[in-house]
Design a protein around this nucleic acid. Structure first.
Lengths: 71, 71
DNA sequence: ACCTGGTGTACAAAATTATTAACATTGAGT
DNA sequence: ACTCAATGTTAATAATTTTGTACACCAGGT
């Protein structure tokens, strides 16, 4: 696995959103808890669609949830 | 992913950017021409990283380049 | 008519992401 | 100490994205 150039603020956003659990976010997004976990811990980057759904849950834009560091 | 809920403005942005070709965009993004083609024609949605790079080339945010229609 | 560049299609393969299931760890509460 | 929920890890598998290759079509220029 290459190094991931994309970070995110999911964890902060979850706790800011009434301490939403990974499980709750997963259900709102329509993926499994492990997927949220892997994304949150930067194991891999989500697809654009999942990224959109996560941002939508928190009422933010993708660019606010995910930060891309160009090399 | 069956139906694609994500549209994009890549074609317009290319021609707005001095009629940049698919090949040129592909090289700037670091993918192949076929990938740009497929994304532009909504054959599939790109990964978040590729989406970020495309947006970066045009100096736009992801949300400006890609439009997600929630179901 | 012939070339050439840009675009579109098709197919198999490689690479990456997503799912599922099982189990370990942590922390708060009783 | 015990329980429970939330989180973290691993491994195998499924699904999707990306690449490579090849070929076709169209428009402009020579």
């Amino acid at each position: 696995m290459a190094t991931l150039p994309i970070k995110n603020k999911i964890r902060e956003l979850r706790f800011f959103a009434e301490e939403m659990t990974q499980q709750e976010l997963a259900e709102l997004v329509g993926v499994t808890r492990q997927t949220i976990m892997a994304i949150e811990k930067c194991k891999y980057s989500p697809t654009l669609e999942v990224a959109f759904k996560i941002a939508e849950v928190f009422g933010q834009s993708i660019d606010e949830v995910f930060q891309y560091q160009s090399v």
